[in-house]
Design a protein around this nucleic acid. Structure first.
Lengths: 201, 201, 201, 201
DNA sequence: TCATAACCGAGACGGTACGTCGGGTCTTGTA
DNA sequence: TACAAGACCCGACGTACCGTCTCGGTTATGA
């Protein structure tokens, strides 16, 4: 159905220009005013070139966002594993908070996240290309901890990932409170030790 | 500057018609195609009437959504408090999952949530009129548990709320996995008891 | 089929602005570059306003052209009838030549004529609103001459009109030679007296 | 500046394909939708091939049209000269009418004529390659008649040509009436004998 | 004989304009 | 004065072509 043109003839310069323009614009103007027309104009590129290679505005943003984290190219992300679960997770969760509050990343990530919220197609793209690999890494680190006997054996790792990162993501998306390192630490502690009052603690 | 029209002369019929039309349309068409023009046409209402009474599309959705949960009118929500924290929270968290998966509520809630993700103004509206009262109730229930010695004394209640509901919201928004009662229960158990492996458990 | 909006709500200012802009542009730029987009921009008018009220670019030109000859408003044109057929026709045919060579009229008339050449719909519009009334006047003047015994009784008046004006129009359209008063006079003389050599002439 | 490619290497097959495609398309679709892109696609030819060999769409049409009347190749056209001026002209004028009403020729001729109306460059092409030789032949036949004393000595031959063919062309272009053999005959009679009432006729 | 230069098909590219949709404002007539 | 209706200016949509520009591939000489 999709005529999908020959990628070998694709202009790398145009691709970069579009991605850069998208990133610039998503930070300059409110999301609702981000238009393909505007991206094309800023990138000095014909609109057709955009429509030829990207199926949606969200797909551009996704590519643009992936292009931001250039170094990781190719290899799947891996979480640090020093053996000290708490320290490792604290590091990573703080990094997550730092990313989410980085003004350079906030705008495109919000744009993507919002798009994913109401469009399952975009959600799938987002999951496959951005969140998925990262989630695998998180699950992997927790599995390692579980195997080392540091994590309860009966805990579903997907649940565990959501328990640690869910609160942070939720607070970021809903702006339901300040998103700080302190919050990250509190969440981590609570997630590991539980909310319940326990004697001998 | 704002003309702020006289609310006493407002047509209740038009208000209802707009809200109903918005709810119908948000379920019929993909969110991107939900237009004020379309709502006005469906509601047999002049566009000006909408612009007179609502500041944004999101505000319409919010009103429409509030109108859905009519019974709660006025009084602030309260969580059950039978003394059995686990049972109470399980009930409520399952109810949350039920709401989020109710096809009748899913569409407008997603629309609102997405709008809130990229627009801080909408996020505030959302927080004040929808999420806020509910969050207070959650915090209140947890405070009661804390006072009863069921919750660790040093736990920040906002962190606690996010630890319990954050994973559910996050999974809903990102569609990162199936959103089931079982998941709710797992999250609750993990949140209360922690992920960490502990002897004597 | 056509939704044809209510003409009573039409903005007279926009109408004028569009017509003026069209006339200006058709004289400034080659016809192929005359765009509705350009007319709308020049007229400071939304494109939709043009599409609402005119079915085609040619229709705009036609209205614009009719607006040029403002004085004639309403009343049908009449050719002079002094009794002296030759003098009357000479006057009118020279006026035709003058119009066709007037740089202010040449551009829009060519645009219209060309459009009419390949589009029968436009040709009909053109005939009904521009050429028709004028042709009636010509026929009427010739009929009067015929009744006065100045024109051969067996001549079809439509043929007669074409014999007098056809050569001029043809030369204008095809630029097959200089379009001068002298040419008009020669055509008129030849049309009245015929090409054939005759004794006693 | 112009690279002027080597004509000896030109692909005759491509030339034919373009000309054929142009003729087909000009008859299938309204002129405004006739695109070089479309011609190239139909002819299975690269766009560059068209741009290399033809300066404009009109030039393609002209070539295509000339290719239709293949037989006349090279030699200039000549009008019959039997000595009987009326019979000869009647024959030719009827043939003109037949051509103009031939549905196979009508579309490309209209396209060309319309293009010539608003573009003086095309008009020149048209005159030089199509109309010019024919006009010479007409003038030649009339000169012969004039020398034989059949045509008034003081008649300008260009005026004479326009007097005979102008009405027919004009009616064709403006569709101002039915274009029939009868009309041709009437025009011819009127042109030769004049419109004026004359005693002894 | 074979390189090498042209034409060729294909089609991506930066652009301009198309005709449509919707945004938010303003006007008109009715209740 | 609120309302239904809808015209208005404007900006963006996604598409069609423009004319230019590579890309391989195939002829078709001329070193």
């Amino acid at each position: 159905m999709a005529p999908t043109p020959d990628p070998s003839r694709r202009s790398a310069a145009s691709r970069r220009a579009v991605l850069d323009a998208a990133l610039e614009l998503v930070q300059e103007v409110p999301y609702a005013r981000l238009s393909i027309e505007g991206i094309a104009a800023r990138a000095r590129v014909g609109k057709q070139t955009i429509y030829r290679w990207w199926p949606s505005k969200a797909a551009i943003l996704l590519d643009a966002f992936l292009a931001l984290s250039e170094g990781d190219d190719g290899q799947a992300p891996v979480l640090p594993d020093t053996g000290d679960l708490v320290a490792d997770l604290r590091l990573v969760l703080r990094a997550t908070v730092a990313e989410l509050t980085d003004p350079r990343l906030d705008a495109p990530m919000r744009a993507l996240a919002a798009e994913a919220v109401h469009d399952a197609t975009v959600a799938e793209l987002y999951r496959d290309r951005l969140d998925g690999p990262l989630r695998d890494a998180k699950r992997q680190r927790l599995r390692s901890a579980q195997e080392a006997g540091q994590l309860a054996a009966d805990v579903d790792l997907d649940v565990a990932v959501d328990l640690v990162w869910g609160p942070v993501l939720s607070r970021w998306l809903h702006r339901s409170g300040p998103l700080t390192e302190e919050f990250a630490d509190q969440v981590l502690d609570a997630a590991l030790d539980g909310l319940r009052a326990r004697p001998g603690r």
